[in-house]
Design a binder for these strands. Structure first.
Lengths: 347, 347
DNA sequence: CTGTTAGCGCTTTCAT
DNA sequence: ATGAAAGCGCTAACAG
């Protein structure tokens, strides 16, 4: 078929090349290279096969193997905009690490939020016989295709409408508890919540993550005896612009602003700006804690105390669960409070 | 083999299922579904095959096809830390889009800068018979394995030591020219360069991109009749911290600071902070232009005028080149000056 | 202890 | 105008 032994015209070394060089059948070579136990093949045969494989630089053709074994050693990672946003990196990194540790390679696709794109992506992945699927979302709203894939599926940072799918989520309830506890421990008894969605939005549009964050924040602060001042946002988007605006409104309000929980880091960044302009010092005049531990906090002075989203661990977890064909249900990953310079004991 | 026709126990619909339902041979079914021209198969046969495929929900097994055709319709994307950094998103996104348009699915791997990891990743990808490889770097230093892969390879944002490989790079020379031109056009005749590497570093450690950026900046400014003040960084890293420090040093220097080029956005962000503290107004007292158009510029006020790195286009380009088996050489992607509020006509 | 044989699902000559 | 048969590279019964 192909001129071998000297590289000339050789396309790629195949198992039968190894076998013939070792003077054995392909079967024997296969058994030995796959370390199959209980096949009484001689020590010598082992040596010869390994030597031949080594010398020839043999590498198995995983498409061929997969065709036979029904295992491709690949996993599919489908995301809405994960590859694009700041949040994305850590999720993908965690997933990649977990996949690599298990000798799997990961396909990454991005659907840009289009459900039709998601269907296409899933088809493409299934056509390539991925062993498992991770469906990630940054918006928090996951959707599954009508016809359920035949391979294990794990949702990453989102829940399925029907909930009959494994879903990896941050433990927002506990994360928010930590934020509340932190301010209470510092002696604060009045807390402005920056970026609370309107009640109607909270019920209708907010993700379950946000809902839990808000609820846990309120209940923990109130139980701790603190007054809670809700400051809603003008726009629905949690960005620096609206954080700036909301903080300004808070300062103009009747209740003095001494402690603030920003619903995410971008809002906090905007609030920093507003406080600076108003000559309100962080943390002397006001303590501020927020959520995410976004990369942008590196640009804030003083350092922002924030509850980190455990995206990397989540990504890793999702792959682990997917490859172990786990049962449906929620898998919560702990959030961790990062204490930095923006919070201080109440005067 | 498998009970079909009613879904019970069926693993997945195969081409022979389609063929038998259409009352034809697999050959015919294959020919028809692949739209092979010149095979005089009847109109009716076509109809029956398409109908059968549709009804059964047939999807080809791409591993099987690939085994036969030696084409996997996949491409491998190997990166040092692309999936983790802010720069990464756009590169991956561009690559993903280009791949999708060409019906390819993309494997993504991350080597975390370890050469050994890169070798492992390349092996894994080659074992899965990717049709092409894109090797991306954010550090700008690409390295290729000893034994060159047999599939087309394109370097993304890096050059190979030996240069005998296609490489996609930003057109730094022209980007820097635009930045210089912009300040000159605004009437500035003294420009502080923030973040210039020391001469020795520039020669030894800097990437070709940085070298071109610096050289083009200097030569264009000088040709335009401007005085150039080089402000080096304390540390080698281009971050906000060192930008802050360097800007402070510039202000303390003898030459008044009226126009600044920061070598990247992070440095610019640090400079913003230093200027603010020194009560130096941007853009009234000082104009500032930088490079990258990083996401962080969203948090800066006034908006930062910056020369955008065309990462998305570069990612797209790399995939396009890889799939068209292009020749070695440099492929430059144009950079674009984004004018925002940080630059103003010289007083 | 080792080899023969039969596929995995697909494409592709080559016959008919 | 259609089908039989071979084979991509691998694994896994089943015989010797």
């Amino acid at each position: 078929m192909v001129v071998r032994e000297d590289g000339a015209m050789s396309s790629r070394v195949t198992l039968s090349d190894v076998a013939s060089r070792a003077g054995l059948s392909v079967t024997a070579a296969s058994l030995i290279l796959n370390g199959r136990a209980g096949t009484g093949l001689s020590e010598d045969a082992h040596r010869r096969v390994f030597a031949a494989a080594e010398e020839l630089g043999y590498r198995p053709n995983l498409m061929a193997r997969g065709l036979r074994t029904e295992k491709s050693l690949t996993i599919g990672f489908v995301s809405d905009r994960v590859a694009s946003t700041r949040y994305a990196g850590p999720m993908i990194r965690g997933a990649l690490r977990a996949a690599r540790e298990r000798d799997h390679t990961m396909f990454v696709t991005e659907t840009e939020g289009e459900p039709a794109e998601q269907d296409r992506a899933l088809e493409a992945l299934l056509d390539r016989r991925v062993d498992a699927l991770v469906i990630a979302t940054v918006t928090g709203h996951a959707s599954l295709p009508e016809r359920r894939p035949t391979v294990p599926v794990v949702l990453l940072n989102g829940v399925s409408p029907d909930g009959d799918c494994a879903a990896v989520l941050p433990d927002e309830t506990d994360g928010a508890r930590q934020a509340a506890r932190h301010l209470l421990d510092l002696g604060h008894r009045r807390v402005h919540l920056l970026g609370i969605p309107a009640e109607s939005d909270l019920r209708a549009r907010a993700t379950v993550q946000v809902r839990r964050r808000v609820e846990s924040l309120c209940s923990n602060l109130q139980e701790g005896g603190a007054e809670v001042v809700r400051v809603e946002l003008d726009s629905m988007s949690w960005d620096a612009e609206s954080g700036y605006e909301a903080a300004g409104r808070a300062l103009a309000g009747s209740a003095p602003v001494n402690a603030v929980v920003a619903l995410n880091d971008a809002i906090a960044a905007g609030a920093y700006e507003a406080f600076r302009e108003a000559r309100v010092s962080i943390p002397d005049d006001v303590s501020i804690v927020s959520f995410d531990d976004d990369e942008i906090v590196n640009f804030l002075r003083p350092g922002l105390t924030t509850v980190a989203l455990p995206f990397e661990e989540m990504g890793r977890r999702a792959v682990e669960l997917a490859l172990s064909e786990v049962e449906p249900g929620e898998y919560l990953e702990p959030m961790r409070l990062q204490v930095r310079g923006s919070t201080k004991r109440s005067a």
